[in-house]
Simulated assay, not measured.
Amino acid sequence: MSNLQDIVVREMKVKPEIESKLETKQIIHFIKSYVQSHSFVQALILGISGGQDSTLAGKLCQMAAEELREEGNPCKFIAVKLPYGEQKDATEVEDALSYIQPDEIITVNIKPAVDQSVQSLKDAGITLTDFQKGNEKARERMKVQFSIASNKKGIVVGTDHSAENITGFYTKYGDGAADIAPLFGLNKRQGKQLLKYLDAPKHLYEKVPTADLEEDKPQLPDEEALGVSYNDIDDYLEGKSVPSDAKSTIENHYIKTAHKRELAYTRYTWPKN
């Protein structure tokens, strides 16, 4: 491994391989431990997109909530559907929900709020690009989840995993914002491995990953947007050798998106010159 790869692997906490039963148990324990350590928490809130990450996080949250209730804690899992108008992959969302069997489902159409925000900015002389509007969608979805969490005395669960974190492939203060991120430490293939272990429908964990935020590029695959395959990203995170062009792309993403992995600086935490 190069020096930078060694640093990144340690930071991202990805193991060369995982044992499915143990990994599942450890993630559920983490979720339960957080809930038990915060007496105000009565619900776990998560937006379900129909993709691999939210399906896995949702299933683990539901399992954790059921164990908590068996132990006398009233915590429940609330799955949130957050379409922008008519969602193209709505069928996969319903399939994911059928698999997860959440305690409660809430649907909020974010289109009116996003469109009004975009129009208000335009009225002020700020015309957003399609890409920037995509970020508006991601932030509106997370805003809704935090509003539900406040109303339901809950916390927001994020779907960020290490293959996403290393590339910064998320919206800052959008899908990158959450109270807990139970999938961190997993890469993409390990998430798929856990879904197989948990008997998820095959088409959900084999679905082509896409953020689907840009209207000019609907259903744009993550790998096309990133310019590198998840297989190469996963190999890199497991400490394996990858082609030089893939290595360069991954490390450039990591360096350029460092700000997304940092909290807001104060004058006391910013490095002195």
Rank of each mutant, 00 (worst) to 15 (best):
K192D: 04
D212H: 09
I148D: 04
K202R: 15
E164I: 06
D199T: 11
I180H: 07
T171L: 07
P243F: 04
A149D: 06
K202I: 11
N187P: 02
G174V: 00
L183S: 05
Y197I: 11
D179S: 13
I166S: 05
P218C: 11
S162N: 00
D222G: 01
A149K: 04
E223Y: 07
E215W: 12
L186K: 02
P182G: 04
P243H: 06
G174N: 02
F184L: 15
D245K: 11
G227Y: 12
G158A: 13
Y230L: 01
A177V: 05
V157C: 08
S244G: 09
E164S: 03
K192E: 10
E224N: 13
Y230G: 00
D160I: 08
G239Y: 06
N187R: 02
H203F: 13
T210D: 13
H203V: 12
L183W: 02
S150H: 15
L213T: 02
P201M: 12
I155M: 07
K202Y: 15
E164M: 05
D199K: 15
D175Q: 08
V157Y: 02
P218H: 08
A200M: 10
H161E: 01
K192A: 09
Y197T: 15
G158N: 10
V156S: 06
N187G: 02
V242I: 05
K152T: 10
P182H: 06
P221M: 14
K217D: 15
D212R: 04
E206I: 08
K202P: 11
A177M: 04
P218L: 08
D175G: 06
I180E: 06
A149W: 02
D234Y: 01
D232V: 02
D179Y: 14
Y170C: 09
T210Y: 10
E214K: 15
Q219D: 11
K192P: 03
D222W: 02
L237Y: 03
L220E: 12
L198N: 06
T210L: 11
I155E: 00
A149F: 04
G239R: 07
D199H: 13
L183N: 07
S229I: 09
K202D: 14
G168C: 14
Y236C: 03
K240V: 04
T159L: 00
G191H: 01
K153R: 14
D222I: 03
V228H: 00
I233F: 05
A177C: 01
K153Y: 14
S150E: 14
K217V: 14
D175P: 05
G191Q: 03
K192Y: 06
S241D: 13
A200L: 15
Y230R: 01
G176K: 03
E224D: 13
L220V: 10
P201Y: 08
